[in-house]
Amino acid sequence: MNGPRLLEVADLRVRRGEREVIRRVSLGVDASERVALVGPNAAGKSTLLAAIAGLLAPAGGAVRMGGRSLSTFSPREIARAIALVVALQEGAPKLSVLESAELGRYPHTGPFQGLSGRDRDAVNKAIAETCLQELAHRTLGSLSAGERQRALIARALAQEPKALLLDEPSAHLDIGHGLDLFALLTTIAARGVAIVAVIHDLVAAARWASRMIVLHEGEIVDDGPPGEVMKGEALGRAFGVTAIEARSPGEAAASTWRFERRAGG
């Protein structure tokens, strides 16, 4: 591929206190890619996401957006390019869905400018894309977990980012709402947004993603199409399990997976 990739992480190292949580991680993500970042607990997934979003200063290496290092971006420039939906955020329960989405325009308006017609259009589009028109005036605190997650995604979409990062977006969602959420993310990716999501549920990750990255002890140990990564040795070693395909008759790809604990895993 010619030219820089949309999002590039080069030799990134991130420290939390004395500990190096991310060790020489390199990866590139293109527009419309659906990347699932998986790994066991404390592998450094959320830290990597925060570093890509420019919230943690790297101890070494760089994150680049369109070939330009994030260290040369202002915080608002980063937020116009990359949106982050964090996990388990309590946020402001008394804000309405609409008010919350309007805050997503801050990177475009700054501290002193009000919302223009263009900003309102972006907010309305984000609310429509997440199917929240009916709930626009409900407070975040009154929503179900699934609706709330969509409201947070609406705020991120109002930023009009090129890359959308999500930290465990399907946590706390039941199966139906989980499927709806992944369908929504697929639609967003289809219009050119690169998505990187930390996902705990390996099966859901394999079904949704176009690419799967396994992070283990701060390093990328596998990166490729979900079908291959799931069967790979690296994922098994990282989680201490063996993934076994369960293919329905006549289907080319695995429709689901089951896992067995490895001896001594």
Binding site: L84, Q89, L95
Partner: peptide, 13 residues
């Protein structure tokens, strides 16, 4: 109001 991480992710110092 959104909390520190969210506010920073939206570009606030």
């Amino acid at each position: 109001l959104l909390g520190e991480t969210e506010a920073r992710a939206l570009g606030l110092n």
